[in-house]
Simulated assay, not measured.
Amino acid sequence: MSRLKDLFAQKQKNVLNVYCTAGFPHLESTLPVMEALQAGGADIIELGMPYSDPLADGEVIQNSGTIALQGGMTLSVLFEQLKQMRTRIQVPVVLMGYMNPVLQYGFEKFCADAAAAGVDGLILPDLPPFEFEASYKAVVEQYGLNFIFLVTPETSEARVRQLDSLSSGFLYAVSSSSTTGNEKDFAAVEAYLERLQGYGLKNPVLVGFGIKDQDTFSRACKYANGAIIGSAYIKALEGKTDIAAATRSFIKNVLG
């Protein structure tokens, strides 16, 4: 059983997935941040792979990626950092990023190195489902990785069901058709999540974009298995010297 399946078998509600940018706030921060998230109570760590043109990311995450890239973060550096990850990190880890650097690295090599490091799943928002199915799905499955697709409030039921069938681990429900870090109308988000819940999907659903505190987390979890927090956590790390304390305080404020 994969770590993600195991997690959702044990915990169906209020699953907290926290996004952090590899190499932020400093190049060597990757594992210390991950350890702080695990110790603080995060159920899943979503590790962002910095890229110069991140389509789905808002200003906060873009800036953290720019800092990481300027500090020397690359996929090769990241996989070197993650070699000892599973001696320190027990929670599921998902890599989130974009296809351009992954293709430059080599897709199969990327999957092999991710699996060797103990990564559980991949989120690559700019990989179209038809391309995934035709060219990449077999490689992802060969290395035992989960692959997570994103759906939005505008995604049709037929398309949601198709993406759910292609996904494993969980389905990422984007709270609205915008970038990360923006304010959301949570009444509309709740109606959308209630609609998704009514489809009886095979995968657990985690909602992301605009989740930032105890109120938005609890409202997101009302009709979903859990939520994903990114920009708010990156902001909480900015300018902090004590990563563990900043992380502990942030997660406590989210979980109550």
Rank of each mutant, 00 (worst) to 15 (best):
G71E: 02
M73F: 06
L75A: 13
F79L: 14
L82W: 06
Q84E: 14
Q84I: 12
Q84G: 15
R86D: 10
R88K: 14
I89V: 11
Q90Y: 11
Q90N: 15
V94M: 06
V94S: 08
V94A: 05
M96E: 05
G97H: 03
G97E: 01
Y98Q: 02
M99Y: 13
M99C: 07
N100M: 12
P101E: 07
V102P: 00
L103W: 14
Q104H: 12
Q104M: 11
Q104T: 05
Y105M: 08
G106T: 11
G106R: 03
F110M: 07
F110I: 05
A112Q: 14
A114R: 03
A114E: 13
A116Q: 13
A117Y: 09
G118S: 09
V119H: 01
D120Y: 05
L122E: 02
L122V: 01
I123V: 13
L127S: 06
P128S: 07
F130Y: 15
F130P: 11
E131G: 12
E131F: 09
F132N: 05
F132R: 06
E133G: 07
A134P: 00
A134K: 09
S135H: 15
V139I: 13
E141N: 06
Q142F: 09
Q142R: 14
Q142L: 12
Y143W: 07
G144S: 06
G144N: 11
L145Y: 08
F147C: 10
I148F: 08
L150D: 08
T155Y: 07
E157Q: 07
A158Y: 12
R161M: 10
R161K: 14
R161T: 06
D164V: 01
S165T: 04
L166E: 12
L166C: 09
S167A: 08
S168R: 02
S168Y: 03
S168W: 04
F170P: 00
F170E: 00
L171F: 05
L171A: 03
L171H: 10
A173D: 05
S176Y: 08
S178K: 13
T179V: 09
N182V: 15
N182R: 14
E183I: 13
F186G: 01
A188N: 14
V189I: 10
A191G: 07
Y192F: 10
L193F: 11
E194L: 09
E194F: 12
Q197E: 06
Q197D: 14
Y199A: 11
G200L: 06
G200R: 12
L201Y: 04
N203C: 08
P204W: 01
L206H: 01
